[in-house]
């Protein structure tokens, strides 16, 4: 009995995933609820083990090599675990949480987990959040992940390793489901941008998808501002001749929850599509109206 008492029972929000199911258990009848309450399903041995394994006194390293940047908005269910995994990617790591428009105490939780928290009252979105985080990052390697996806540290390490080995932009080798005739608009846009950048070998890998890691050199060359429009940053990186590679595949499509109802069109799709159009325009501005491509033997002056 004493052994149990030694571990402080964390509050509900720290417990993570299961707290979200509270309402559901109340909708069941009284008898059912009694069983659940008595059985203490929320705090069982496996959870306790996970918590004891977690390094409670972890803090961001003051002179980090790796900076992990996590934009967060109301993600208290997962943020503690995400930070825990992020802290394990390298011995000298800082975790920067860009809390924007959070009202559920995610920022406090993140601070408690040892992250350096940047607060914004208004929601910024993932991309702008990432740009803000990159601005504050001190490390030589910048890793970008999301606050709502728990990716084990072991699967994040390849990105760090790739950048350490000289890659400037280590991308998630995930193109979405493509073994079919019709694919999602965003998947198509990513493929097309890579094709127009003469990097069709990247397939659908893009800086739009997390996780991805940047070297300090890449950040200095591109600037942190352009990270707020990921396809533009992608185009800039290719145009400036940075070394971009697909690293490992992490199926973020499955990890990412569906946020909109089926009949509703995702506003994000239009935005991302537009981002890609913007980056093609940027290419045009940088090169010529053909994006630097050959006109072969066309003699256009003959037609007037």
């Amino acid at each position: 009995m004493r052994r149990y008492k030694r571990i402080r029972r964390p509050n509900r929000s720290q417990m993570g995933v299961r707290s979200g199911k509270r309402t559901e258990s109340f909708s069941l009848s009284r008898g059912r609820r009694r069983i659940r309450r008595g059985g203490s399903l929320r705090y069982n041995s496996s959870m306790r083990k996970a918590l004891s394994r977690r390094n409670k006194w972890w803090m961001s390293h003051p002179h980090p090599i790796v900076s992990v940047i996590i934009p967060v908005m109301n993600e208290r269910r997962t943020i503690a675990k995400v930070i825990h995994e992020a802290s394990r990617v390298h011995p000298e790591t800082e975790v920067i949480v860009v809390s924007n428009g959070s009202s559920d105490g995610s920022d406090l939780l993140a601070e408690g987990a040892g992250a350096h928290v940047i607060r914004h009252a208004n929601p910024l979105g993932h991309d702008v959040g990432r740009a803000k985080g990159a601005e504050a990052a001190k490390g030589e390697i910048l890793l970008f992940i999301d606050g709502d996806m728990i990716i084990p540290a072991e699967r994040l390490k390849p990105f760090i390793k790739a950048v350490a080995a000289g890659v400037d932009v280590a991308l998630n080798d995930y193109s979405g489901p493509t073994n079919r005739r019709y694919v999602h608009r965003v998947v198509l846009a990513k493929h097309t941008l890579n094709a127009l950048l003469s990097r069709s070998d990247l397939k659908g890998a893009s800086m739009t998808a997390v996780p991805h890691a940047l070297s300090r050199r890449a950040v200095d060359a591109m600037g942190t501002d352009c990270l707020s429009i990921p396809p533009l940053a992608h185009a800039k990186a290719v145009h400036q001749g940075l070394r971009m590679e697909r690293t490992v595949s992490i199926d973020v499509g499955r990890l990412n929850p569906i946020r909109t109802k089926q009949d509703e069109q995702d506003p994000l799709t239009a935005l991302i599509d537009n981002d890609h159009l913007q980056s093609v325009r940027w290419i045009i501005d940088q090169t010529d109206n053909r994006g630097g491509y050959t006109d072969l033997n066309r003699q256009r002056h003959l037609v007037r």
Binding site: N74, P123, L124, G125, V128
Partner: peptide, 13 residues
């Protein structure tokens, strides 16, 4: 679409 990015952020989350 670039202008209402923050509104989309709000919805997305």
């Amino acid at each position: 679409p670039q202008r209402n990015r923050d509104q989309i952020a709000l919805r997305r989350n």
